[in-house]
């Protein structure tokens, strides 16, 4: 790899000269350490029950579908019926996520379930989520050994199991939860905020769903 350290020195030197700074700034270092919140819109600063309502409304607005389920044991039935309702094959690729282990897939023997990262042939995936952001109806998904990111993008249909308790108000609330994991300062390789299915307006400004990513985003909102 080419050494770019002289460019580095010159760019930083130029910046310091223009700013009249020598040692960098205490102000900036403090901001990094404290990470203060900026203005957070009032919209999602609600009771949790109302945040769940808002999440559902906002997600639906961006063409995701939301189905409420009493518990994880209802997931196989819901997935099978969802796929059947759309005339899609009863085959799913599931994230090997320990959080989803409690789902009794064998209750639905007609459903073909395999686990792992997405392959090109997969038509539908089922993943968990880290959070649901009420303000915008977005899902927040983290990558990890049990959570391959390809499942979020390659299949045509993405089904996400979101627990009610995972719904938060805002992106800031979600960051707080992530920081609370204790992996201080280390972000997962990929953090996806997903707001509705893939779309494009690139041809004559008409919004069409299913550009490169999933054309359907189905959220199973599970009580816990």
């Amino acid at each position: 790899m080419a050494d770019t350290s002289s460019a580095r020195a010159q760019i930083l030197g130029g910046i310091r000269k223009a700013l009249g700074s020598v040692e960098g700034s205490e102000d900036a270092r403090k901001r990094l350490a404290v990470h203060p919140r900026n203005l957070v819109p009032a919209r999602a600063q609600l009771q949790h029950a109302d945040q769940v309502e808002l999440f559902t409304r906002m997600a639906t607005e961006v063409a995701a579908t939301v189905e409420r389920l009493p518990g994880l044991s209802d997931v196989p039935r819901a997935v099978a019926e969802y796929l059947a309702g759309l005339n899609l094959p009863a085959e799913i690729r599931v994230a090997p996520d320990a959080d989803l282990d409690a789902i009794p897939w064998d209750q639905r023997p007609t459903l073909t379930v395999s686990k792992g990262r997405a392959r090109d042939s997969d038509g539908a995936s089922v993943t968990g989520a880290f959070a649901g952001v009420a303000e915008t109806g977005s899902l927040m998904l983290l990558s990890g050994t049990e959570r391959p990111t390809t499942l979020n993008f390659l299949p045509d249909t993405h089904i996400v199991v979101l627990k009610r308790s995972q719904v938060v108000g805002t992106m800031e609330d979600a960051w707080d939860r992530l920081r609370g994991l204790g992996v201080a300062g280390t972000m997962p390789r990929t953090v996806n905020f997903i707001t509705g299915p893939s779309r494009t307006g690139d041809i004559e400004m008409r919004i069409e769903l299913g550009a490169h990513g999933p054309r359907r985003l189905h959220i199973l909102l599970v009580e816990d």
Binding site: M58, E61, V62, P96, G116, R117, A118, E135, T136, G137, S138, S143, G144, T145, P148, T149, T150, T186, M187, P188, R189, T190, V191, N192, F193, I194, T195, G196, P197, S198, R199, G213
Partner: peptide
């Protein structure tokens, strides 16, 4: 309100990751 995908990428894939 938000674009469909907002993605934060940090470093290469981690040991044990299945993709990335």
């Amino acid at each position: 309100e938000a674009s469909a995908y907002t993605t934060f990428s940090t470093g290469p894939r981690r040991p044990g990751d299945l993709d990335g």
